[in-house]
Design a protein around this nucleic acid. Structure first.
Lengths: 167, 167
DNA sequence: ATAAACTTTCAATTATTTTTGAAAGTTCAA
DNA sequence: TTGAACTTTCAAAAATAATTGAAAGTTTAT
């Protein structure tokens, strides 16, 4: 496999993976492209490489910046804006995990809390609803806490050694 | 909040969450409905409760069975088929984690492996592609292994105590 | 073998999401 | 200021995904 094929394969795989965890194809592809680029890219560069429109590029770049995984790079003397993504995978994982937690997991936990806190009227179905949503709530909370601890920078020696051990 | 509202809130939240992690709304809602039901439900029951068509119900039930989180329950003397979902959240999490690993994560890991294994022609861009996809590969593998270990039934005393400690 | 009871399939429709492209907006050098 | 260089916005179009419903398929009791 040559560079060009490998690059295309990586970008398209990353793209379809993206749609699977909540961001759209173009957004994931832009990130992928930046991730393997040796230098910052302009909107023009990105549009051309991925063959997507200017509007699409602009909107998705903004979203990537909202996620905090792409930043503007101002090149002295250049009018155009250039973009780069976080190159360190650990840091990338950290950011993505935090954002997903904030955007998706935490709100769900909140709703599970609400639902599982309704007044128990002692009917069988209310009991079941409370019991099951409470169980989901606890699971979601544990998973969320764990993910954040494992990925966070302020790891204690304990989580660090766990990480080493477990893999 | 009364039972009816709580139930609706739970089902619709679970539904929209579903589309976010790769299964469609109806599928997630059916699972949610079964999850809080006190007894097995027939296709008729589900269609009526969620106001979805027979075809839709049938197809999504089959998918849930493919995932291994819903099973047919044959009630003696009854012609109709009845359905239940796994009620234990731990077991549910285990199944979902295994399926996601198999369907999504493993294939991506394989492609990352391929891409990161292209011949190094000593150009800067090939070097970067290899370096970055290799880093992603390692991260994905660690995450996959870890998830499966944490969730698996055959936990060693180590992962068990880690779990206790970390939450 | 038949027919009632039930489930599955799938082409067509409907709903949702993504993408485009051109107009409007911004910034900056002269 | 003006206008060239660039970015953003957003209504419309295109692409994709989900849903319907009725016909075809299956199972079972008689």
């Amino acid at each position: 496999m040559e560079y060009k094929d490998a690059k295309e394969k990586f970008i398209s795989t990353w793209g379809s993976l993206g749609s699977l965890w909540g961001i759209n194809k173009a957004m994931a592809q832009i990130q992928a492209l930046l991730f393997i680029s040796t230098k910052p890219l302009s909107m023009e560069d990105i549009m051309e490489d991925l063959k997507i429109s200017r509007g699409n590029t602009s909107m998705n770049l903004r979203q990537l910046m909202d996620w905090g995984i792409v930043t503007k790079e101002l090149i002295p003397g250049e009018r155009k804006e250039y973009f780069t993504t976080e190159k360190n995978v650990q840091e990338l994982a950290r950011t993505v995990a935090k954002e997903r937690s904030r955007r998706e997991i935490k709100p769900v936990i909140k709703i599970l809390k609400e639902v599982s806190s309704i007044k128990d009227d002692n009917t069988k179905k209310t009991r079941e609803l409370i019991k099951q949503t409470k169980a989901l709530h606890d699971l979601a909370e544990t998973a969320d806490t764990m993910m954040n601890k494992l990925v966070s920078q302020e790891q204690t020696w304990i989580t660090k050694s766990i990480l080493k051990f477990i893999k």
